[in-house]
Design a protein around this nucleic acid. Structure first.
Lengths: 333, 333
DNA sequence: CTGAAAGCGCTTACAG
DNA sequence: CTGAAAGCGCTTACAG
C-alpha cells in the first residue's frame, strides 16, 4: 500500500495525493476530503523512510539520557516525549551511562538519524566544550545550566544548582545540624554536582564550617551506588547527623544503608534529597527534598527547542529555582 | 557526504562501495580495506533512511509499553534495549496508557517503521484476539502469557500469574490473615490481573473463604491510583488486616495511604507487592513481594524474538515462576 | 570480483 | 488547483 495505490484509487495524480496528505494549502478542500476518505478506508500510512529521504531530515527529536536508572530523568522523559509528540514530532531515545560522552553519541546520532533537534537529559560541560561545536541542530541541555557554555544552537534549562545546594545546607544548619555529609557524583566533572557542592561549601563557610574532603561521599545516581557509599562511610566510623544526597534515588539508597546499620531516619540521621520525584512523597519517611519544577523544565525545554527549529529563534538560558519540600526525613537537633 | 563521495574518493563504483560497506562476501579484502579506510577518514555514516527505504525494513525492534510510569516495565525495558542493541538492532519505544489498544498502535507502527520485530510489555488479550492477526512480524508478548492466544508469530514469556496469585494469598493465610483485600487493575480485562485474581480466589476458597466483590480494590498500576483506592477503602470503613497489591508501585501507594490514615505497616496492616522491583528492597518497610525473574524474562524474550527474525523459528511460550521474596511488610497475626 | 542501471516511496520545483 | 518528472541515497539483480 503506497501513495501510488491511493492515487489510482482516487483518480488523482501521485503529486496531488502527496500534497493532500501534507495538507498543502493549494489543494481544494473537496480533493483533500476525498483523498482523506480513501486513506482512512485503506488504512494507508506514508512510508516514513521515503519521506525522510526526500525531506533530508527526520521529523524526530532525539533524547540523550545519561543514566537509564535515573528516576528523575525517567519522569521528565515521559513528559518531554508527550510534549514533542503533541507538536507532531517523533521521539527517539538513547540511554547512556553516566560516564559516556553524550556529545560524541549525539554527533553519531545526527548523521544517522538527521533529527530536527536534540534534548540532553544531563550532561558534562567538558564534553560540550570539546565536541558540541560540531553539532548544528537546535539542542537543549535540560536540567543543567552552565554559564560557561555558549553555543549558537544550545539552550539550557534547569534549576540554579548553586542556590539549591545552599538552600539544602542552610535548611540542615537551621535545624541545628553541624556534622553534615554531602553525597554526589564525581564533582570534578563540571556539572550540576559541582555547582551544588559549591553552594554547599558557601553555606557551610558562612556558618564558620570548613568543608573537607571527608564530608563528600561519591556515588553515582543510583540507589545501589548510594547504598554502598553510605555503608562504607558508616563502616569507617562516619558520624554525621545529616546527609544531603544530590538525588532522591541516592537519598533512598543512603537511608536503606542507615536502616540496615541499625540507625533510624530521622531520629539518628537526617536525610535530604534532591529532585522531588513522586517517590519522595510516597517513601517512608516522606523525603525532605529539593523539588525541581519538572513540568516547567520540560515545558520550557520543548518550547525553546521548537522555537529554534520552527522559527529560527536564538537559544536561551532559563534558570529556575528549586524549592525545598519538607518531608519527615529531617529532624531538628 | 554520501556513498557517491566515497565512490569518487576511492575510485570504485557506488555498488562496490555499498557491498564493501555491508561486508558482502564477494568483495576482495583489499577493496574492503581501502574503502573502510576512506570511510573512517571522512567519518561517513550511511543514510539510514535511504537504506531502509531500499531494504523495505528497518533494523529496529519496536517496544510497545503499556504504562509509562510502570517501574517494572521501565527496568525491563532498559535490559531489553541493551540486549537487542547487542544483537545489532535499534530500538524504538512507544509508551501507551493502560487503556490504549496496544495492538492497534502496533499495527500503525508496523506500517510506519517496518520494524523487524515487536515486543509488547503488557497487553490485553482481547486486543490481541481482535487485531493481532493483521500483524505479521515476529512478536513477543512479554510479562504475560495467556494460553488462549495462538498466533504463528507471537511468543509469550512471563510468570505463571495464577500460581503467583495463589502463592501470595497462601502466604498471607499462613501468617494468620483472614481478612484480605486484593488490589489490581480492571480484572474483566483478560490479562495478568485476571489470572492472578483467579489464583487468589482459588487459594481463598481452599481455605473456606468465599471471595466477594468488596475484597477487590481497583487501581491502575501507579502509586497515585493505589493511594486513592486505598484511601477510599479506608474511608468506607475497610478493616482488612492484609493487602495483596498486584505491583510494587501499587503496594507503595497503598502503604502511604495506610500511613497517612494513622495505621502502621505491618503492625496494623500487612502488605504484599508484586514484581520484585529494586525499590522493594529499598523501601521501608522492605516490601514482601512476588519477584518476577526480570533478567530471565528479558533474556528469553529477546532470544525467542531473534530466533524468529533471524532463523525463522516458530514462536514459543515460556512460563516462569514468580518467587516470594520476604521483606518486612507482612507480619503474622 | 566489479560496474551500470533500475527502483524503493515519497516530495517538490516546474509547467500548465 | 493539478499533473508529469526528477531525484533523495541507498541496495541488488543482471551482466560481464
Amino acid at each position: 500500500m503506497t501513495i501510488k495505490d491511493i492515487a489510482r484509487e482516487s483518480g488523482y495524480a501521485i503529486s496531488t495525493v502527496s500534497r493532500a496528505l501534507n495538507n498543502h494549502p493549494d489543494v481544494s478542500e473537496e480533493t483533500k476530503r476525498r483523498i482523506a476518505q480513501i486513506v482512512a478506508e485503506k488504512g494507508f500510512v506514508p512510508n516514513s523512510n521515503a519521506r525522510r529521504l526526500k525531506r533530508q531530515q527526520g521529523k524526530s527529536i532525539a533524547f540523550i539520557v545519561k543514566g537509564a536508572g535515573n528516576m528523575f530523568f525517567a519522569d521528565m522523559l515521559v513528559e518531554l516525549e508527550r510534549l514533542v509528540g503533541e507538536a507532531g514530532f517523533d521521539s527517539v531515545v538513547r540511554y547512556l551511562n553516566e560516564s559516556d560522552d553524550e556529545v560524541a553519541h549525539a554527533r553519531q546520532l545526527c548523521t544517522e538519524l538527521k533529527p530536527r533537534g536534540l534534548i540532553f537529559l544531563g550532561g558534562d560541560s567538558r564534553n560540550f566544550q570539546q565536541g558540541f561545536d560540531q553539532i548544528n541542530v537546535p539542542s537543549v541541555l535540560t536540567t543543567t545550566v552552565n554559564s560557561e557554555l555558549n553555543f549558537p544552537n544550545l539552550s539550557m534549562v534547569g534549576v540554579d544548582d548553586r542556590a539549591a545546594g545552599q538552600l539544602a545546607i542552610e535548611y540542615l544548619l537551621a535545624k541545628g545540624h553541624r556534622d553534615i555529609v554531602v553525597m554526589g557524583s564525581d564533582h570534578s566533572a563540571i556539572g550540576p554536582c559541582q555547582m551544588r557542592l559549591e553552594g554547599c561549601i558557601q553555606a557551610l563557610s558562612a556558618h564558620g564550617i570548613a568543608f573537607t574532603g571527608d564530608m563528600f561521599l561519591q556515588s553515582s545516581f543510583t540507589m545501589d551506588s548510594a547504598y554502598a557509599a553510605m555503608q562504607s562511610y558508616l563502616k569507617n566510623g562516619g558520624k554525621a547527623t545529616a546527609v544531603f544526597a544530590m538525588s532522591d534515588a541516592m537519598a533512598i539508597g543512603a537511608i536503606r544503608a542507615l536502616l540496615d546499620a541499625g540507625l533510624s531516619v530521622p531520629q539518628d540521621v537526617s536525610v535530604i534529597g534532591f529532585d522531588g520525584t513522586p517517590l519522595a512523597r510516597y517513601y517512608s519517611p516522606r523525603l525532605t527534598t529539593l523539588c525541581q519544577p519538572a513540568q516547567q523544565i520540560a515545558k520550557t525545554s520543548v518550547k525553546l527547542l521548537l522555537g529554534c527549529i520552527l522559527k529560527g529563534q536564538p537559544p536561551k538560558t532559563v534558570l529556575l529555582q528549586a524549592k525545598l519540600e519538607p518531608g519527615s526525613s529531617v529532624r531538628a537537633i
